[in-house]
């Protein structure tokens, strides 16, 4: 299973490196989202700083949506989805591989976004261990849920519009938990932050387990 996961993740990441879609399109998109918030709220820089955790996670959520859509777009060319099924790879391995590649891409985007909120919003970043654990656990949850719902929507003609509808409500707990933990880290109130981190960890574990169990039927029946 892990061998299959590495094979799929390696393939997806290699394609991303070659196509430069993340670098040239998704990365700038994420930063534009931050920039638009800055334009909308700029008159009050204090409010921008206050709202940094929420704005950061909204930008992450929108970026995650694009990353998941991109992950399945790779399989929509030249009957790639059939090829993936024909490969005979372990479906749980395929799930972990696709989610793993999306995790790497989203983490890279989050690094850019963290730099973005520091420069554009003037956010002072403190509590690094909590920030790091929050982003790691929240990202695992986001990509796991995204990979499940991406597979569900991928076989349908209305996938582009259906995926946001399925994905965004489901990951609301990640946005709430991420925002609270992030805010707690910036405020220096770590104890409350770690509690929210626990919620994020539970969400991540649940969705990874769900994906490993359900991915075969999602790949076959959707």
């Amino acid at each position: 299973m892990f061998r299959d996961a590495l094979l799929v993740a390696g393939k997806d990441l290699r394609i991303e490196v070659r196509s430069k879609v993340v670098l040239n399109q998704i990365g700038p998109f994420s930063l534009v989202v931050l920039l638009l918030f800055a334009f909308a709220l700029d008159p009050d820089r204090g409010f921008l700083q206050e709202a940094t955790p929420g704005l950061f996670w909204i930008a992450v959520l929108l970026s995650a949506l694009v990353v998941v859509q991109r992950s399945y777009a790779l399989e929509s060319v030249d009957a790639g989805r059939d090829a993936l099924r024909l490969s005979g790879l372990d479906p749980a391995g395929v799930f972990l591989g696709k989610a793993g590649a999306s995790f790497v891409v989203l983490m890279a985007l989050e690094v850019g976004l963290i730099i973005g909120v520091r420069l554009m919003y003037g956010a002072s970043l403190r509590g690094w261990p909590l920030l790091l654990v929050t982003t790691l656990t929240a990202t695992v949850g986001l990509v796991a849920a995204g990979t499940i719902y991406g597979a569900l929507a991928a076989g349908l003609r209305v996938r582009e519009t259906l995926l946001p509808l399925l994905f965004l409500p489901v990951v609301a707990p990640v946005m709430i938990g991420g925002t609270r933990a992030f805010g707690a880290a910036l405020d220096g109130s770590s104890a409350e932050g770690w509690r929210w981190c626990g919620l994020l960890g539970t969400f991540a574990v649940a969705y990874v387990a769900l994906g490993m169990l359900l991915f075969e039927s999602l790949l076959e029946d959707s």
Partner: peptide, 16 residues
């Protein structure tokens, strides 16, 4: 699937 090879109308290749 691990034992058969299928060549359909599409090639199943990753263009990048």
């Amino acid at each position: 699937r691990r034992r058969v090879g299928y060549l359909g109308h599409a090639n199943g290749l990753y263009p990048e």
